[in-house]
Amino acid sequence: MKTSTLLFQFLQNGLVLLVAPLLLGWVNQCRAWLQNRSGAGLLQPYRLLFKLFHKDAVLADNASVLFRSTPYILFGCMWLAAALVPVVATDLPLSAAVDVIALVGIFALARVFIALAGMDIGTAFGSMGARREMLVSFLAEPALLMVFFTAASISASTSLTTIVETLAHRGFVIYPSMAFAGVAFLMVLLAENARIPVDNPATHLELTMIHEAMTLEYSARHLALIEWASSLKLLAYITIGFALFLPFGITKAGNWAALPLAVAALALKLAAAGAGLALLEALSAKQRVFRVPEFLGTAFLLAVLAILIHYLLGA
């Protein structure tokens, strides 16, 4: 294993860790501009993390080891997922582990722990949020897998690195199947990251919240790790979308001359994706919880239609 490829891996690991809060701040700032507000600024997520890390943690008397360790597990899973995705380079030392099914497993592992932690204290809000989170994941994961299988069928591999290299070096080709898969992936991204129309991360209304209900009992460094993990999850999903549908501007590990261009391309794509996400949230309304299964059921049908189009029409 070459030293240059190791340096690329460490660079990507640090890059996703630092960029994730900035991406969340950019989305919130764009959303504030669209709502004719000034906003808190791009660096507000960093200020929030700094404040939370310097507070004293308050835990319930009946909090178990699971409750205490879940923020660290959640942060580790999300950091691992974001670091595995080809963000700026392929052929990294961890490329062999970048399997789309394994990525879904990492997200599922983190979800199981946060749901168990939400029920650990025994509060009504935590248990309600855990049940709703499991309902969303139960419907979102099959749709996400079908989206991955569509891209894997085109590249003949479930390795995300192979998918990126196949689609990026094949020239400009329009795949109708990937168009349907892209819409389904966007719907799954909104649901999995607790964004409008499935959830609203800016409110704490007990009748509507899903993700926030499981984290109400956390404070200080534990809450900081959860918030950081949420931003890493959003970054991971967006970069997965880039790898599947916009696999351009990604260099190979060890090519230091192309690294500035790859970082610039990533910055432009993240800025456009963040602005688009803010625009979509500004134009959408929060759905009722009982409408979420219909929303994710539509995503699954679109993903199934995508893979059927690929196999039946070869497109």
Rank of each mutant, 00 (worst) to 15 (best):
I174G: 00
I121M: 11
A179G: 02
L109D: 05
A202S: 13
A89Y: 11
V136Y: 01
A168V: 08
G182H: 09
N200D: 13
I101S: 08
I210M: 01
V87P: 03
E217V: 13
V100A: 13
L167T: 07
V100Q: 09
F148W: 05
A202Q: 11
V173T: 00
A117P: 06
A110I: 07
L160W: 00
M128Q: 09
A156W: 02
L92S: 10
S177G: 09
T123E: 04
A108L: 10
Y218K: 15
L167C: 06
A156M: 09
A202W: 07
A110H: 11
L144F: 06
R195M: 14
V112R: 07
L109G: 10
P176Q: 01
P201W: 05
A96Q: 09
T158R: 11
F149Y: 15
F180Y: 15
M214D: 03
H169V: 00
M209Y: 03
T158G: 06
V87D: 12
I106G: 07
M187L: 10
T161I: 00
A213C: 08
E141M: 07
A96L: 04
L160Y: 00
T90F: 01
Y218C: 14
S219R: 00
L139T: 11
D91I: 04
L160N: 06
Y175E: 09
G122Q: 09
M214Q: 14
S177K: 04
R195C: 09
A96K: 12
I210Q: 08
R131F: 10
V100R: 13
I106T: 14
V136P: 00
